[in-house]
Nucleic acid binder design. Structure first.
Lengths: 155, 155
DNA sequence: GTTGAAAGACCTAGTGA
DNA sequence: TCACTAGGTCTTTCAAC
């Protein structure tokens, strides 16, 4: 597949790095049968042109204090630009909110919320989320088990 | 906060790495006022003990061929172990499915599905997802805009 | 676009304090 | 935990193909 000025080598590099960014250039050049200079130059370009946004460590949330993940569907009173912007700006400030998407369909926003347990979620809901203006309803669903959870897009 | 045999230095390292794993040990030791030997030893331990699962590159999906993200709620016919296991095993094989969670509430599974556009989503739905056994309903919601999307847990 | 080499930076393990 | 050392590895640059 050729895409957006990327050739197969670029795609292959992205595939590898989005699964394991600890690979060295040397390891990648062996896998792809290119020279290390080529790999280095390609990766630099992929970063400079914004294909690679950042590299992050993925932590084990069950060993940390964030074992409860909730998905909350939020419906707002109205859909003026001001109401939408205010909600987006304020909800993004909460560290418990890992993701906030505006959605199509029967609700306005979908939030992914990470807390330690149901008490902590309740505190977040009552003291933070529910204090934001113009919220009509919040409906929450909780993760029972995680079958698959990757950050890699299909390329 | 002290947690799971982690002291403040460990927590600080995790906070940094889950936002930017390209930091060198040297940079981290400056930020935290510790020696580079200490930082190296701590990170090694955090990996060995499974607090750090892996490091990955986060790509810009809008510049790649995955600009449409759907969240799909799946309800199954029955909840026998066999039905649940089969669904989880089969749905995890699809590269379009980035996340699969079993959930509390009015549906059984929540999927995050990445495709290039609505046509590709439709093809995935008809040719892959809907062919799995024991599915009663699938209700899908699509991402209009992304206000916040981080992989870092609140620590 | 690709290569190979050279210089510099970094990682890693070890020591003694 | 720190400071220091030293060998090995990796990154980064650059001239040349």
């Amino acid at each position: 597949m050729v895409l957006n000025n990327l050739d197969q080598t670029d795609i292959d590099i992205l595939k590898l790095l989005q699964k394991d960014a600890s690979l060295t250039n040397k390891e990648i050049c062996y896998k792809l049968n290119k020279s290390i200079g080529t790999i280095h130059q390609r990766i630099q370009r992929l970063k400079d042109e914004g294909f690679i946004l950042r590299t992050v460590a993925i932590l084990n949330r069950k060993k940390l204090n964030t074992s409860l993940i909730a998905f909350s569907q939020v419906l707002l009173n109205d859909h003026t630009a001001d109401t939408l912007n205010t909600f987006e700006r304020e909800v993004a400030k909460f560290p418990e909110v890992m993701e906030c998407f505006q959605m199509t369909g029967t609700f306005d926003f979908l939030l992914r919320i990470a807390t330690s347990d149901m008490d902590a979620y309740h505190a977040f809901y009552r003291n933070k989320l529910a204090t934001l203006p113009n919220i009509t309803t919040v409906q929450s669903f909780f993760v029972l088990s995680e079958t698959k959870s990757i950050t890699a897009y299909p390329l």
